[in-house]
Design a protein around this nucleic acid. Structure first.
Length: 534
RNA sequence: GCGCCGGUGCCCGAGCGGACCAAGGGAACGGCCUGCAAAGCCGUAAAGCCGCGGGUUCAAAUCCCGCCCGGCGCUCCA
């Protein structure tokens, strides 16, 4: 049974979906007017992992993540740059989508844009007017908050409490009946983009966007509504109020991820600790996977810390995953297959530079998995997405796999396959770089046999109930590999191997230094040297 | 001010009443392996320990009360 913390209930509850076997998930996306930052990435990663896990469990997930492409920030930027709002939004949406792809975030099934749903938003506002829960003023249409019973339930605060804060902070709009009332529709100001409406030209308020799109696409009573915990109030509170005002049932579960701090404080431009996803990714080819691992090592409801040291330690951990793949390959256990260039259409994410690889499906003909490890993983994930413990289970299995490899045990194949399945398909962390990173020379001269899985005894995974090991392949993340070509490297590795066989250690070491200077690491295994780029 | 969430080993971070498990990751040190490395495995005593002070309990890092410190929200925000 899968449980999740529900913000509205204030406790961990079993995930009770509207339809058995299906999950309708709506996660609030970004407003596109600037570079996505690490916080956007943490949020996107949270729902990506939630989705992957639900799918790993065999559930049919419909994931919707919106793009807010019209708002004050976009308008301001467009004005500053002398462009249209549309141009600004299109540009930054592309940057966002590309950055998420590089983080291995699967494309949501639908990515609605606010501007494409204005008609539905106008209709929605109209219905709220019809039931008398809203009123129109010269500046726009406002929801009368006191008409909505349980308005503050999501934030667990009552009206007076909220009002005390609001009055003190925000300049009170004279036209509003209550400082808490918020705009459903904003009357157009000169030079601003606008759409026609029964209340005059204007544009939708922020909250109405998500209500119209989530209910419009997923329908009433959809399963999970997620977003950053900074959206609990006012955004989600107001979305909910709009839906309740017209008597519609909204999200069954509210999931909110915590914020991300850099050097102890929330990042912000003014503090100079604002970090974009692109910068982070550019700093090191392993950072995409490292950041995902770092995010997963902290529970999603707890503020997490990011700094260069932590990124470095996460990179080291990622390298252990890769090392296992190399060791397994050297031992003849190879569950990586090269897909001959076909870039799986359903694949959401960018391929590994020029090569693309995938993991063989483990459904019916796949290798058997280690039952205890799978159970530990599932137990951790079922309990409110316990990714830190899930990661622990994976690394524990990784250690066992290495030990089995050392011992030449038959269990090795199963354990290696388990590590791969859980980390890649369950959490979205690919285990090895492009196949050529595992390029292998030596006595046998064999390279990874395409599509071949050499594993003993491919029985199913212990016949346990709903392991749901049925989803398909894995998305990759871009990790550029500039520098010397494979041929150049293999040339040096081959020469070094010759000197080693001649026991000319000095020459061998010199060649290794040379390779090392090129960023290439050579490991001598019983089956011959194996190399990979740093 | 109001609300919420945290303070666990050198660092990050699980655990949230009882298992000689304070998980897992990183760093460090020792051993094995190796031509040397890398990768990998094994190990890292005793004492003490889970912000501080009380309390509840046969039993608390885990529950209650108080205090100190930190973060976030209440305003566009993932």
């Amino acid at each position: 049974m899968i449980s999740l913390y529900d913000t509205l209930a204030g406790e961990v509850r079993p995930l009770a979906t509207r339809e058995p076997g299906k999950v309708a998930l709506y996660a609030c996306g970004p407003t596109v007017y600037d570079h996505p930052h690490l916080g956007h990435a943490r949020s996107a990663l949270t729902y990506d992992v939630l989705r992957r896990y639900l799918e790993w469990r065999g559930l049919d997930v419909r994931h919707v993540a919106n793009i807010t492409d019209i708002d004050d920030n976009i308008i301001n930027r467009a004005r500053d740059e002398g462009r249209t709002e549309g141009e600004v939004a299109v540009e930054w949406e592309a940057v966002y989508v590309d950055a998420m792809a590089k983080l291995g975030v699967l494309d949501p099934h639908e990515r609605p844009r606010a501007t494409e749903w204005v008609r539905e938003m106008v209709d929605f506002v109209g219905r709220i007017m019809d039931v008398g829960a809203a009123y129109s003023t010269p500046t726009g249409v406002y929801l009368r908050v006191r008409d909505v019973a349980g308005y503050g339930d999501l934030v667990h605060r009552d009206l007076d409490d909220l009002r005390a804060s609001a009055g003190a902070r925000v300049e009170v709009d004279e036209a509003k009946e209550d400082p808490l009332d918020f705009a459903l529709w904003k009357a157009a100001k000169p030079d601003e983009p606008s759409w026609p409406s029964p209340w005059g030209p204007g544009r939708p308020g922020w909250h109405i966007e998500c209500v119209a799109m989530s209910l419009g696409i997923l329908g009433d009573d959809f399963d999970i509504h997620g977003g950053g915990n900074d959206l609990v109030f006012p955004h989600h509170t107001n979305e909910r109020a709009e839906a309740l005002a017209v008597g519609r049932t909204f999200a069954r579960h509210w999931v909110h991820n915590a914020m991300l701090n850099i050097e102890g404080t929330k990042m912000s431009k003014s503090l100079g600790n604002y970090r974009t996803v692109v910068e982070m990714l550019d700093e090191h080819p392993l950072n995409g996977r490292a950041f995902r691992l770092l995010v997963l090592q902290t529970h999603y409801r707890k503020t997490m810390e990011v700094n260069p040291e932590l990124m470095a330690s996460a990179r080291s951990a990622v390298q252990r995953l890769d090392a296992l793949s190399r060791r397994a390959a050297a031992a003849g256990i190879d569950i990586i297959s090269r897909s001959g260039g076909t870039s799986g259409a359903s694949r959401a994410v960018g391929a590994w530079t020029d090569d693309e690889w995938t993991v063989l499906p483990t459904s019916s003909h796949g290798p058997s998995l280690d039952h205890a490890a799978v159970e530990a993983f599932r137990e951790a994930m079922d309990d409110d997405l316990g990714t830190p413990q899930a990661v622990a289970a994976i690394f524990d299995t990784l250690r066992r796999a290495n030990a089995a490899l050392d011992a030449g045990s038959e269990d090795a194949a199963t354990l290696v396959a388990t590590v791969r399945d859980l980390s890649e398909r369950g959490l979205g962390i690919p285990n090895a770089g492009p196949p050529h990173l595992a390029g292998r020379l030596g006595a046998g001269g064999s390279t990874c046999a395409p599509g071949v899985t050499v594993l003993p005894d491919g029985g199913d995974d212990g016949g346990d109930d709903d392991g749901g090991l049925t989803a398909s392949g894995e998305g990759g993340m871009a990790e550029d590999t500039p520098g010397p070509s494979d041929a150049e490297i293999e040339e040096l590795v081959t020469r070094r191997q010759a000197t080693r066989e001649a026991k000319d250690w000095a020459a061998a070491d010199a060649l290794r230094d040379e390779l090392s200077a090129m960023g290439v690491v050579v490991e001598d295994t019983p089956a011959g040297p194996v190399w990979h780029r740093q």
